[in-house]
Lab assay of single mutants.
Amino acid sequence: MPSETPQAEVGPTGCPHRSGPHSAKGSLEKGSPEDKEAKEPLWIRPDAPSRCTWQLGRPASESPHHHTAPAKSPKILPDILKKIGDTPMVRINKIGKKFGLKCELLAKCEFFNAGGSVKDRISLRMIEDAERDGTLKPGDTIIEPTSGNTGIGLALAAAVRGYRCIIVMPEKMSSEKVDVLRALGAEIVRTPTNARFDSPESHVGVAWRLKNEIPNSHILDQYRNASNPLAHYDTTADEILQQCDGKLDMLVASVGTGGTITGIARKLKEKCPGCRIIGVDPEGSILAEPEELNQTEQTTYEVEGIGYDFIPTVLDRTVVDKWFKSNDEEAFTFARMLIAQEGLLCGGSAGSTVAVAVKAAQELQEGQRCVVILPDSVRNYMTKFLSDRWMLQKGFLKEEDLTEKKPWWWHLRVQELGLSAPLTVLPTITCGHTIEILREKGFDQAPVVDEAGVILGMVTLGNMLSSLLAGKVQPSDQVGKVIYKQFKQIRLTDTLGRLSHILEMDHFALVV
Rank of each mutant, 00 (worst) to 15 (best):
P16S: 01
G151R: 01
S217L: 04
A60P: 11
L154E: 04
G258N: 04
G263F: 03
G162V: 03
G162W: 01
S147T: 01
E131C: 01
K97L: 10
G274T: 01
L268S: 01
R209I: 09
R51G: 07
R182T: 14
K137F: 10
L230Q: 09
G246N: 01
L230Y: 14
H22A: 01
G259L: 01
I76C: 07
P12A: 01
T87W: 01
L105N: 01
K97G: 14
S227I: 01
S117C: 01
P6R: 01
T260G: 07
A107L: 01
I264C: 14
S175P: 05
Q7F: 13
R18G: 10
H66G: 08
S32A: 14
A155K: 01
R164Y: 15
A69G: 14
A186Y: 01
G274P: 05
A155F: 14
R190V: 08
I143G: 05
I219W: 06
N149S: 01
C52V: 03
L28V: 13
I142Q: 01
H17L: 11
K271Q: 09
N225W: 01
E128T: 08
K82L: 03
D221I: 01
G31L: 01
V178Q: 01
Q55E: 10
G96I: 15
R276S: 01
G11L: 08
E128G: 01
M250I: 08
D35A: 13
K94C: 13
V90F: 03
I44G: 01
R224C: 10
G263H: 04
C275N: 01
K36L: 13
V255Y: 01
R196H: 01
A265C: 03
F111S: 01
P215V: 05
I142L: 09
E9Q: 04
E62L: 09
P192C: 08
T236M: 12
N228I: 01
S202G: 01
D79K: 01
L56C: 15
L81G: 12
G115E: 07
I92F: 11
T260D: 04
G258E: 05
H65E: 01
G258I: 04
E34Y: 11
R190F: 01
E176C: 03
D133N: 14
G139T: 08
E4V: 10
F111G: 06
D245A: 03
P215I: 04
N149I: 10
R18M: 07
R276C: 09
L105G: 01
D129S: 14
P46D: 01
T135E: 01
A107G: 15
A157L: 04
A231V: 11
P200E: 06
D179M: 03
V168T: 05
G256H: 11
E9M: 01
R91I: 07
T87F: 01
G31I: 01
P74Y: 01
D129I: 01
K82R: 09
S227A: 13
S174M: 01
E29L: 08
E104G: 09
D179F: 03
S227D: 15
K271P: 05
E171I: 10
I261R: 01
S174H: 03
D133A: 06
P64S: 07
G256F: 03
C109A: 15
I127R: 01
G85V: 15
K94M: 10
E104V: 15
L77F: 13
R45G: 13
H218A: 01
T235A: 08
K75R: 06
H17N: 08
A130D: 14
E37T: 01
A253D: 07
V178R: 15
D198W: 05
H22V: 14
S174F: 04
T257S: 07
L124R: 06
D140V: 08
L81H: 09
D79Q: 09
S174D: 01
E110C: 03
I188C: 01
D221L: 06
G246V: 08
E37M: 01
H67L: 10
P64R: 06
S27N: 14
H203S: 10
N228H: 06
G185F: 01
I92L: 05
D35R: 08
Y233H: 09
G162P: 11
K137G: 07
E104M: 01
A207W: 01
